[in-house]
């Protein structure tokens, strides 16, 4: 099973399709975590369609790489990709968070194909990733583990326990991506509970740190390439992002952390995504 090798240009198109899937999940009036899902959407596209060894038609392959959303509320980004990979039926997009559907409010491996753990109680996903990466090391396997964390999530002490243990175990098969969108549920992180110098803090704990623009596909791919070349220590990619990216009315607006679209906002987003997709199709 080969890694998918979409180019940066192709990935940008894929990310538009994933944002379209996100929109299909969040019909007008449906409350959902739009902001944090869209800020991490480009990284998610790059992971599933370029970086990771993951085959949507063989989701139990023991050689697959693992992706965990420690910031579990942003799992809509993962659903959007898993639908595009064929793991989840497209009709499920319309049944988000319903008794009839398989798409839960937070990641649930028991319910949703392609989801690798139970996360969403914040702070726990990185530790689960440490366990997976250590397990692969014990078995001398090449699988890689990717964990997406929120910047607001770093207020959870367990994140730092996990950060310490990952470097203690020299887990160079573990990559943490921090979705540095600078907003949390009720406002700006620096106003609520400052988590400054994120990269310096993680670096001080023995990690290799890469900072990149989380919406520039070339920068994202370059960061993952650099991460693969690091040996003996875990890697943190601080992805600088915009909460609500791709949905102009939601960009940088904290209330879209978990909000709903009006019909007008929905139509506007649909029109914009359709136009962007047409533009790339005509190139």
């Amino acid at each position: 099973m080969a890694r998918r090798q979409q180019s940066a240009d192709q990935l940008a198109v894929t990310a538009l399709k994933l944002r379209m899937n996100l929109l299909r999940m969040l019909k007008p009036g449906k409350v959902g975590h739009l902001g944090g899902s869209s800020s991490i959407m480009d990284v998610t596209a790059a992971l599933y369609f370029n970086e990771m060894n993951f085959d949507g038609s063989n989701i139990t392959d023991t050689n697959r790489d693992r992706l965990l959303f420690s910031k579990g509320h942003a799992v809509l980004a993962q659903y959007a990709a898993l639908v595009e990979l064929g793991c989840i039926g497209r009709e499920e997009l319309g049944k988000l968070k319903t008794l009839e559907g398989v798409l839960q409010g937070h990641p649930d491996m028991e319910k949703t194909p392609g989801i690798e753990a139970v996360t969403g109680s914040l702070g726990q996903g990185l530790s689960i990733g440490v366990g997976m990466a250590k397990g692969f090391k014990i078995d001398k396997k090449d699988n890689r583990v990717y964990v997406i964390c929120g910047d607001g999530e770093a207020a959870e002490g367990q994140i730092w326990e996990a950060v310490m243990s990952a470097s203690a175990f020299n887990l160079d098969n573990l990559t943490m991506i921090v979705d540095r969108n600078k907003l949390q549920a009720t406002g700006s992180i620096c106003d609520i509970f400052p988590i400054d110098s994120y990269g310096k803090k993680v670096e001080a704990f023995g990690w290799h740190v890469i900072e990149c623009d989380g919406h520039d596909m070339n920068a994202i791919l370059k960061a993952f390439k650099e991460a693969r070349e690091v040996h003996g220590k875990p890697v943190a990619i601080i992805a600088h992002t915009i909460k609500g990216k791709g949905f102009p009315f939601a960009e940088g607006v904290a209330s879209f952390h978990n909000g709903s679209l009006t019909q007008q906002q929905y139509d506007e987003a649909l029109e914009l995504l359709n136009r962007q997709l047409e533009e790339v199709a005509s190139c």
Partner: peptide
């Protein structure tokens, strides 16, 4: 949670 991750890889 690390134990959970270990269990998830067998």
């Amino acid at each position: 949670s690390t134990a959970a991750g270990l269990a998830l890889v067998g």
